[in-house]
Each structure stands twice: as C-alpha cells, then as structure tokens.
Simulated assay, not measured.
Amino acid sequence: MSKHALAGKVVVIGGGAKNLGGLISRTFAAEGAKIIVHYNSDATRAAADAMVNHIQTAGGEAFAIQGDFTKVSDVENVFAEAKKRYGGIDIAINTVGMVLKKPIVETTEAEFDTMDAINNKAAYFFMREAGKSLNENGSIVTIVTSLLAAYTGDYSTYAGSKAPVEHYTRAASKEFGARGISVNGVGPGPMDTPFFYGQEQEQAVAYHKSAAPLGKRSKTGLTDIEDIVPLVQFLVTDGWWITGQTIFANGGYTTR
C-alpha cells in the first residue's frame, strides 16, 4: 500500500463507533485520515465519543455525529456537516446494517419494513449523498453480506434487503466513474461481533464456525473484523482500479 495514502483524507464512516466500523475508524485515523464517526442512537453515543477521544488523543482529527440513516434528511445532514467542517469528502464507507434470522412465514410486515429501511433504503441514500459530495478520485464502500451467494432459508429479509445494494454499486460505479470515484461492496462472512451472536443459537454458531475452509486460520472460526479492514483500506487506496464489484471476504464460506 502506498505510504501515507490516507493522510489528510476526509472519511465518512457510517456506523463508525464500534465493531467493524470502529476498527475502520481507528485504523484510518492512525494513517492520518480525518474521520467522521457516524452513529445511530443515543445508546451508541458513548462509544462514538470514546472513539473521537481515542483519535484526538493520538493526535488525529475526528468528530461524531448522530443520524438515523432510514431518514434521508439525516443522511444528508451527516455529509453536509462533514463538508462544512473539512471542505470536502474523499471516502465514504457504510457499515450500517441489521440482521434478522426468521422464517418467511413468521416475518411480520413491521419487521420487513425495518429491515428494508436499514439495509436497503439507507444504503441507497448513503450512496446518493456520497455521489453528490465526494471529491474527484474518491471511493465508496458498502458492507453487504456473503449470504448474497448462499442458498439458505431464514435470512430472507437480511440477504434480500442487502441484495439491491449490488446493483446500486454497479449503477453508481458507472455514474460516478467519470469523476474517478470507485464504488464497491464487501461481503464478509458471519463476523465475530454482537451483530452476529444476537441472532444465532449455539448449534448454528458451531455450524457457521465450521463452514469456511479457511476457518482454522481465523481466531474464532468466523470472519474477524481485523481481516476485513485491510480489504476496505486497499479498495479506497491502491485498489482504486477495482469498481462496481461485490467482493466476498469470508474464508470460502460462500462463493459464486
């Protein structure tokens, strides 16, 4: 990777306070990037403030901003505030998402609407605002899921609401490409975060840990967030020539 490739870059990170988004925030800040730490709810405010304090204590630049990305006005506000503070934006990474494991026949309309708003609508308008706001030669990355390549039940609203992001990625890469902006999706396997464990029973966890051929090289048998961050970092720096793609980073958990 080019030395100092992220130095001085302004980076909006949707869900940047904890888990995968938090590690991206810390890693990019350590490389000299200016970080906009987005968080969704009051419950995450302390984690967002702690992230900003960590970055600033280490000599970096960051600020936290709250927003419900199912509301387009909140997405607009995050990007507008980033531009107001730093004058421009170079990179936009969206890690926001929600998982639901439930049979189709048991899924309520309210659950469907919630999943669709968080995984589909929010991703679309995040990408839209990034397309409006990014400087030339910028990058957009959305975290999707390796279940897009799975033949399985029970995750219909999760994988189904992430599936449209693949086409948004292709369309945006075509539309923004003239400005040198790359647009990609990254599909991790089941990640070792609370996001995963809240939906899975012990037997299912054991299966997921056994499903990736490279699982024995992982600390947990699952996708470790430490293995996703370098890929995201590559895509927004040296990997700029890659665009319009959904990349499965999952140890072989699923493939096409």
Rank of each mutant, 00 (worst) to 15 (best):
T27V: 05
T27C: 07
F28D: 08
F28H: 06
F28K: 01
A29G: 05
A29L: 12
A29Q: 02
A30G: 09
A30K: 10
E31L: 10
E31P: 04
E31R: 01
A33G: 12
A33H: 00
A33P: 03
A33F: 02
A33W: 01
K34Q: 12
I35V: 15
I36P: 01
I36R: 02
I36N: 01
I36V: 00
I36T: 00
V37P: 04
V37N: 05
V37H: 01
H38R: 05
H38S: 14
H38F: 12
H38P: 06
H38D: 06
Y39L: 15
Y39D: 15
Y39P: 03
N40H: 09
N40L: 03
N40V: 13
S41Y: 07
S41D: 14
S41A: 15
S41C: 14
S41W: 10
D42W: 15
D42N: 11
A43H: 13
A43N: 13
A43W: 04
T44H: 15
R45Q: 09
R45D: 11
R45G: 05
A46D: 11
A46V: 10
A47H: 10
A47T: 01
A48D: 03
A48G: 01
D49N: 14
D49M: 14
A50H: 00
M51A: 01
M51I: 09
M51R: 09
M51V: 15
M51G: 05
M51E: 13
V52L: 15
V52K: 08
V52D: 07
V52E: 00
H54I: 09
I55H: 00
Q56M: 14
T57E: 02
A58Q: 13
A58V: 15
G60N: 02
G60K: 07
G60C: 13
E61L: 14
E61V: 08
A62I: 02
A62M: 05
F63C: 01
F63R: 00
F63Q: 04
F63H: 00
A64D: 03
I65C: 08
Q66Y: 14
Q66M: 11
G67D: 13
G67A: 06
G67F: 15
G67E: 14
D68F: 14
D68G: 11
F69K: 04
F69H: 02
F69S: 03
K71C: 03
K71M: 12
V72I: 08
V72H: 11
V72W: 04
V72S: 08
S73L: 03
D74Y: 08
D74C: 05
V75M: 08
V75I: 04
V75Q: 03
E76K: 10
V78G: 06
V78S: 02
F79V: 11
F79A: 02
F79D: 03
A80H: 07
A80L: 07
E81W: 11
A82N: 00
K83H: 01
K83M: 00
K83Q: 03
K84P: 00
K84D: 07
Y86N: 10
Y86T: 03
Y86I: 00
Y86D: 04
G87M: 14
G87E: 02
G87C: 06
G88I: 11
G88T: 09
G88S: 05
I89V: 08
I89F: 11
I89H: 14
D90S: 03
A92C: 10
A92P: 02
I93L: 12
